[in-house]
Computed example of a mutant assay.
Amino acid sequence: MASSRDRAVLVLELLAHHVQGLPMSEVGDRLGIPRSAAHRLLADLKEMGYVKQNAHTAHYLLTIKLAALGLSHLAATGVTDAAQPLLDDLAERSGELVRLAVIENDELIWVAKAQGARTGLRYDPDAGMDVYLPATANGLAWLAALSEERALELVSRQGMERARTMGPGAPQTLREVLDRVAETRQRGFGMVVEAYEAGTSAVAAVVRAAPTAPAIATVSIAGPSVRMTPARMESLAPDLLTCARALAAASSHSPLFAASN
């Protein structure tokens, strides 16, 4: 049985994925805890300043306090100072959305981004915190840097259920995922076409301190599929890989990258 501390963390993680908030009853039902316990947890978190209640809907949602803590932590680790100029440059070159995800505790976590699209269609999703490995270019890039056994372990941990609600290009079986991982490993970078979301495509590469070192992060370029065709993603790959190498060189200055490595 989860402790009160564990339940409080689960509440925060749940609300982080629902920016409009959730009613108390749904928080309890989604987490499988009694509604009375959910009410006490939300009251405690509200008193601590991490949760607030919408006056009109009575839904509970996160305050800016948690986001501020996260931003302060990223600033202290040097990620924004080291990575942001490189992401900005790649976004300007590509004219698309560029994002960085760091590997931590067997997960890929989004930590920074730069938007290169100035006019026309823009892709800038609310992707949550963690990266879904089977249906994202970032996920495939990281899985391709691992052994097949390790990749299968990470995919099995996330499960395939989420893939069934994603884009038409999302893999539906473990065999499909492993085939795409093998293709990514041979190509040298990950590519997805309308996998995470219909109408969008992306290309991604791993960041590692040395060619044989473990991956510590991934960097990607994503945009509308009408622009991000397979041919264009191939043409963007050299700039993407150059950025990945530059991020690797900058990683030694950030304790967050060091911890991942």
Rank of each mutant, 00 (worst) to 15 (best):
G159F: 09
L236A: 12
V181H: 00
W142E: 04
P238G: 13
L154D: 06
M129I: 04
S156V: 13
E148N: 13
S235N: 00
A210D: 07
L140S: 07
P171E: 06
M228R: 09
M160F: 14
S156N: 15
A145W: 02
A117G: 00
L143P: 01
T200G: 04
A163W: 08
G116H: 13
V219N: 02
A135M: 05
E183D: 11
A195I: 04
Q115C: 04
S235I: 00
I216V: 04
A195V: 11
E149C: 02
G169V: 12
L121K: 11
G159A: 05
A198D: 12
V206I: 14
L140E: 12
R187H: 10
A231D: 12
A195D: 12
D130K: 15
A182Q: 13
D124K: 06
A182E: 14
A237D: 07
R118N: 07
S235V: 00
A209N: 01
D239Q: 05
L146Q: 14
L146A: 06
R187P: 08
A237Y: 07
A209I: 05
G169D: 03
A135D: 07
A151G: 04
D179Q: 14
S225P: 10
T200L: 11
R185W: 05
A144H: 11
E234C: 07
L174D: 15
A135T: 11
V131Q: 03
G190H: 11
